[in-house]
Amino acid sequence: MRPASKPGFTDAQLATAWQAASLLLGYPDEELLGRRPLLRRAAIALPAPAGTPLTRFLDHLDATPPPDLAADYVATFDHRKRCCLYLTYYAYGDTRKRGMALLRFKQAYQAAGLVLDDTELPDHLAVVLEFAATGDLAEGRRLLLEYRAGLELLCLALTESASPWTAVLDAVAATLPPLTGRTEDAVARLIAEGPPEEQVGLAPYGPGAADSGPVLLPDPVFGGRS
């Protein structure tokens, strides 16, 4: 059964919101900052639950010097495990199960005719949003919903640290159905227990894990089909 979208969003609007969020979760380099006018036009055209927080974050980009943006991004996403952008980390930590989950992400992309180079893991939230927006909207939405608990935990961590990137996560959450009791229970369990800690690496995702080798794609992550 196809998961229901948030009321008030067409598929085209979902794709626009997810593409904008994907870009805004990237490192704030000159290329991203140069896209601000286009991203602002996209945000203004979206329903308010997604468009307003995206516009608020773009206001922050406009008002903050680029070196400060870069330093804040690194401090937030590279130095805080609780703000990890890799969705499977929250459910599996660094365990063998995470390696298999990563492989399932890669296989979902390949089934849509898209491949990912080895410079990025396939569960990075920006990559998943890019796939949902440009590859397979229904499958991308399924992945977001499957890892909704991790997504909510990331949003909570950003909110607690008063991070401006909270607005981007708020926009993503606005495109998804309301939380169910089961997801709320999963979030509570993750808060109480944290990710598993079996330190065995991600070998199941490494070379030989999939049938076909990677193909380098242009930026953004998915720019072509195999």
Rank of each mutant, 00 (worst) to 15 (best):
A4R: 10
G8D: 03
G8C: 01
G8S: 02
F9A: 01
F9D: 03
F9V: 06
T10Q: 01
T10Y: 02
D11W: 06
A12L: 08
Q13D: 08
A17K: 12
A20S: 15
L24G: 00
L24R: 01
G26F: 08
Y27F: 15
P28C: 07
P28M: 09
D29A: 11
D29H: 08
E30G: 11
E31V: 10
L32Q: 05
L32D: 12
L33F: 08
L33W: 07
G34I: 04
L38R: 07
L39S: 11
R40P: 11
A42E: 14
A42P: 11
A43T: 02
A45Q: 05
P47K: 00
G51V: 08
T52R: 09
T52N: 07
P53C: 03
R56S: 01
R56Y: 00
L58G: 04
L58I: 13
H60F: 04
H60D: 01
A63N: 11
T64P: 01
P67K: 03
P67D: 06
L69V: 07
A70R: 12
A70N: 00
A71F: 02
A71I: 02
A71Q: 08
Y73A: 09
A75H: 03
A75M: 02
A75I: 01
F77R: 00
F77V: 01
F77E: 00
R80C: 11
K81E: 12
R82N: 04
C83L: 05
C84Q: 07
Y86S: 13
T88E: 14
T88R: 10
T88H: 09
T88P: 11
Y89A: 12
Y92C: 10
Y92I: 09
Y92L: 05
G93R: 07
G93K: 06
G93T: 06
D94T: 06
T95Q: 07
T95L: 05
R104K: 14
R104Y: 11
A108W: 15
A108D: 12
A111M: 10
A111G: 15
L114R: 15
L114A: 14
L114G: 08
L116V: 12
T119W: 03
E120Q: 14
E120C: 05
L121N: 09
